[in-house]
Simulated assay, not measured.
Amino acid sequence: MGHTRGGDLMSVPQAGTRLQWMDTLRGLAILLVLIWHAPAIPALFGYEMPLWLEAVNNFFLPLRMPTLMFLSGLLLTRSMGKGLKIYYVGKFKALLWPYLLWAGLHMVLYGHGLELSSPRAWIATGYLWFLFYITCYYMVAPLVTKLPAWLPPIALIVTSIPLEDGLAKKLLYFAGFFFAGHLAMQHRNILAKLTQWPIAGYCGAVAALFGIVSAARGTELAYRGEFALFSLMGIVAAITLTEKYSAAWWVRPVAFVGRNSLIYYVAHFPIILCVLYLVEAMGLGNVWLIAIPGLILSLVICTLLSKWRQVIPVRWLFQAPDPARLVTSRSR
């Protein structure tokens, strides 16, 4: 088993191929985002958030988004291997386009406090901040990767530590995890050794203890560079567990979410928001009457959108239209 796992982790996913454990882990992280946002969105409108649920979220806070950043960095080598022109066009179509589209929808449905014509309104807009950050990292990656692979993760995380809480601090902090993923792909043999027992077990135990502290202290410890090592240890343990069980039949739905993570990420928030508006219009004011139907409906609709993701115009919600294909289609 150890030899097979090491081989999987050390392989570079080629175009058109996927690593099952990577899809599974990404799917788990996205599902944690949806489960949290289902009650957190009503809390933005004054509904009471159960304290136990907030503690559970704070337990996963050091792991959830850093894991998504790390996994994106793992794929950087493959993306840049296509050539810079294809690389940048691809990132525009698959990242910048859906960000701008759904950021505009978010500001219309939820509001932003700024006019749509204001450039600031389009920077890390609402819940889409993760997509904005990832886009920024991919834009600068061809330059950053000219440095020794070990330097950017360390420099970025350390630089984030003295900064005040805000956009710059988070941007640098998460960039550290993104380029740590790239570093791990450059040294896949080391990653394979770290994800073997008992090392992975020690990492998981330490990360779990830090998660308990985070649950008790709340967001006070969130996204702080001085604690980034605990998040990295949690990522090692999470990779180990998902890689071990990713072949099981019961994780296939989770891997499906991971393969279509962009759709679930961008579409769930406005769906839950619409449920909230509908429940309030009916005169009902209970957080669970919003959270539970909102979560179920967002899962159902996002799954259908994922099934139809290649059907036009559904495809254009998540990927920019290809002008060449449009011209060919019209001529036909």
Rank of each mutant, 00 (worst) to 15 (best):
M1H: 13
G7A: 14
D8I: 13
M10W: 03
Q14R: 15
A15N: 12
G16L: 09
G16H: 07
L19N: 02
Q20F: 11
Q20D: 15
T24Q: 06
I30F: 06
L31T: 04
L32P: 03
A38M: 03
P42F: 01
L44D: 15
F45Y: 15
W52M: 10
L53M: 14
E54W: 14
V56C: 11
F60I: 03
L68S: 05
F70H: 04
S72G: 11
G73I: 00
G73K: 00
G73H: 00
L74F: 06
L74E: 00
L75N: 09
L75W: 04
L76M: 08
L76T: 02
R78N: 10
G83S: 06
L84F: 11
L84P: 05
K85V: 14
Y87M: 07
Y87H: 08
V89Y: 08
Y99F: 09
W102D: 04
H106D: 14
V108A: 14
L109F: 10
H112D: 15
G113T: 07
L116P: 06
P119G: 05
A121W: 03
A121M: 08
A121P: 01
Y127Q: 15
F130V: 05
F130G: 06
Y133R: 08
Y133W: 13
T135I: 06
V140K: 09
L143Y: 11
T145K: 08
W150F: 13
W150Q: 10
P152H: 02
L156F: 10
L156Q: 01
V158P: 00
V158W: 08
P162R: 04
E164Q: 15
D165K: 14
A168I: 13
L171K: 03
Y173Q: 07
F174L: 11
F177V: 01
F179N: 06
A180C: 09
H182I: 02
N189L: 13
I190T: 14
A192F: 06
L194K: 00
Q196F: 05
A207G: 03
A208H: 07
G211V: 01
I212P: 06
V213D: 10
G218W: 09
T219D: 14
E220K: 12
Y223E: 15
G225N: 02
L229K: 04
L229P: 00
L229S: 10
F230V: 03
M233N: 04
V236H: 01
T240A: 13
L241P: 02
S246T: 11
A247P: 09
W249N: 12
R252K: 15
V254Q: 03
A255N: 02
V257N: 01
G258K: 00
L262A: 01
I263G: 02
Y264L: 05
V266F: 02
A267Y: 00
H268C: 08
I271H: 01
I272Y: 08
L273N: 08
C274R: 10
C274L: 15
V275H: 04
L276M: 13
Y277I: 12
L278M: 11
L289S: 11
A291C: 05
A291N: 07
P293I: 04
V300L: 14
C302Q: 01
C302E: 02
K307S: 11
W308V: 10
I312S: 10
F318L: 05
P321K: 04
P321W: 06
A324P: 07
V327L: 14
V327R: 14
R332N: 13
